[in-house]
Write a protein that binds this DNA or RNA. Structure first.
Ligand SMILES: [Mn+2]
Ligand SMILES: [Mn+2]
Ligand SMILES: [Zn+2]
Ligand SMILES: [Zn+2]
Lengths: 156, 156
DNA sequence: ATCTCAATTGAAAAAGGTTATTTTTTATCC
DNA sequence: GGATAAAAAATAACCTTTTTCAATTGAGAT
């Protein structure tokens, strides 16, 4: 369902937009069309792990006056707010995805060494390992970043 | 045991040096004093995860004419040869460590969110998870990159 | 020991991604 | 609508990494 607003196609529901506005306001920030458009692009492209430049290209379609610096500033802000997660797939750019649940750990990623495809793994299965590490190393784990490199079904 | 050679303190054994020379030669590369000095710094600083700049600073003590570009070129070469592993701890620089065994997976890292300390975890314990992923996603795993973020014993 | 030639080097410039600065515009609140 | 503080655009600066290029070096052949 598309709702036009300020010349931007909004895929966020009214509730999501309100929630965002609320979150921003609580911290003394404003909800601007640019910020909404940027978050919207990320929501619409869920699972794609976009880079700032890629977000910029998408946002520009609806919002051609926007500057790249604004995209950088906004993803940083959204990360600081716990809405986005910054990733590194060693391809020279940072990439962002939505944080799924404020409580849960982020999912794992399977990265194909041949075609570069990135698949997501929702199973966590690290509880045993984390429990053991916490004890053995006296280290309290807050989150993890787990990447598996190999060959996807099409490339192996 | 230190052996002086070409004005450089060599911590590599004669055998290690020969092995390196052999490996390089097989691929049409040469063993130069710069390359030996760079690898030596990495060996001596095992566990420290040095960046190219940090390697450069160390190497310059023994080899003051060396250029930073040579360090970058050499760590890339050593990585391509499977001797080094390139890491990313999201601190703005790439970091390198020795590959422990050509067969084994690389160890995990515990990264303290407060003091930045990096601890190594030799336990792997991912066999069950990897087995399950291989089957469920039809993905053949070659290696993994596992980081745990949290608070170390001194910071928690 | 000298010669030859490809590989390697250091210095400097360029590239590429990200961040900071400055001025102008905008959102919010009254 | 007007005041005020945040955010935007544009541009420059920044920092790590790569490339370029002329000069040097290493290894094998002569
Ligand atoms: Mn993901
Ligand atoms: Mn390590
Ligand atoms: Zn693939
Ligand atoms: Zn710590």
């Amino acid at each position: 369902m598309k709702i036009f607003h300020w010349g931007v196609i909004i895929m966020m529901t009214k509730e999501e937009t309100e929630k965002l506005k609320q979150d921003l306001k609580e911290r003394g920030y404003k909800l601007t069309p640019q910020r909404r458009a940027i978050l919207n692009v990320i929501i619409v492209n869920e699972g794609k792990h976009l880079s700032p430049e890629e977000i910029y290209d998408q946002v520009k379609m609806e919002c051609p006056e926007i500057g790249l610096a604004t995209v950088y500033r906004t993803v940083q802000l959204l990360e600081k707010m716990g809405i986005l997660y910054k990733m590194n797939f060693d391809d020279g750019v940072s990439r962002y995805e939505l944080v799924h649940s404020a409580e849960d750990h982020q999912h794992h990623h399977l990265i194909c060494l041949k075609c570069g495809a990135i698949e997501e793994v929702e199973d966590d299965l690290l509880e045993v390992l984390e429990e053991r590490i916490s004890k053995k190393y006296d280290f309290s784990i807050e989150n993890h970043d787990v990447k598996f490199y190999g060959y996807c079904k099409r490339c192996k």
